[in-house]
Design a protein around this nucleic acid. Structure first.
Lengths: 199, 199
DNA sequence: CGATTAATTGTGGATATCCACAATCGCCCG
DNA sequence: CGGGCGATTGTGGATATCCACAATTAATCG
């Protein structure tokens, strides 16, 4: 799934004009005529950004935005509006919208914002992919291994861990080796960095 | 230096009214009649938040905001304006303003925003204090100790570190013990968490 | 029931770490 | 010049870790 610029606007003239502009600059554009239509096509895997008109028939851009937030949307959203007011813009940005642009807009400026949004999204996805792979590795750990990992991350010696869990040191060593293997680390320090880095 | 609500507005009536409102709700308020005046009083140590009118004689609220950004201001800024437009609000928020409120405003809403801003600032300062203390500990390390710390954080054994630095293992052990002592950690895992957590 | 998986434990040896006790060398400062 | 500091090294012993080889028990699953 490569990056797309999703465009939701109920005005066909705008869809055509913006679509053309984007394509001409090398951005793949996917137009939708309504919020409902986009919502039906949406999936968490979509990559790119979303250009969203606020005033539309059917559900409004703001309503669509809220719905997408609930669904866990990660696409950066650039609002387009001819009739925005300040509270609307403030609220949208504080909820996490990427930008809020008033029509008529300057082509170059919009393209810059699109490019920046695509960059952000790519970076976010790359980092999400990392933490996905981390999570999948974590899920492969058995309960006991996770439990022992916690104690290792608390800086405890195998001996102490064995005491606390009332098991032999040898068993701790085995679990430790297994979880290092599964997590793809060679030392406790690497494990700690892996776990600490992920916020 | 305890938390204050700094208020910059060239309209005395507003300063009085807002000042009274804030005081009555238990917020300590420090009014200034101009951007220049606040700038002269500003220091990086100020704690609290800043209520900033946009349209003022002398330098404008937006100019003051930009200047404060250059100076490394950490105070959350809540803009107050009677004549804001959308691009202005968008730009301010994207530069990191905490909020952007149009006059006339609802008292309770403004107070909520102030409280939230104070909370954010307190949290930010607490975390900054941590990283300050971390930095001061880091500065107490000798060059050699820092160098060895890097290698420890790379997950290398004392033996390997000794080889790479062309010194004896014993020396590495000594430095290692010293830097652990100075950094206040007992194990390499704790050190790693300390260093990794601070972005 | 036979296979698989997780948890558990043991032995023993090779490596590493931790640390007290001790010492040398070079540099800068009052 | 004597003292302090940082870097360096050594010895030796107590602890820990790493790991190959080996095995038992309990639970789950087709």
């Amino acid at each position: 799934m490569s990056a797309q610029v999703y465009l939701v606007d109920d005005d066909e003239a705008i869809r055509d004009a913006l679509g053309w502009l984007l394509q001409s600059r090398g951005f793949a554009c996917v137009p939708h005529a309504s919020g409902e239509e986009f919502l039906a096509a949406w999936s968490p895997q979509l990559a790119g950004c979303l250009l969203l008109d606020i005033r539309m028939g059917g559900i409004s851009g703001l309503q669509l935005f809220d719905r997408l937030l609930e669904l866990g949307n990660a696409l950066p959203v650039i609002f387009l509006t001819g009739h925005g007011d300040v509270p609307m813009a403030v609220s949208a940005l504080k909820k996490g919208a990427f930008d809020f642009v008033e029509k008529p807009f300057n082509d170059k400026e919009l393209l810059d914002r699109v490019q920046e949004a695509l960059r952000i999204d790519a970076a976010r996805r790359a980092s999400a992919a990392n933490s996905e792979s981390l999570n999948s590795r974590l899920e492969r750990l058995t309960v006991r291994e996770r439990q022992i990992m916690e104690l290792i991350l608390a800086g405890k010696f195998n001996k102490v861990i064995a005491d606390e869990l009332q098991i032999s040191m040898r068993t701790v060593e085995v679990h430790r080796a297994h979880l290092f293997e599964k997590m793809g680390v060679r030392t406790a320090v690497e494990l700690s960095q892996l776990m600490t880095a992920r916020r």
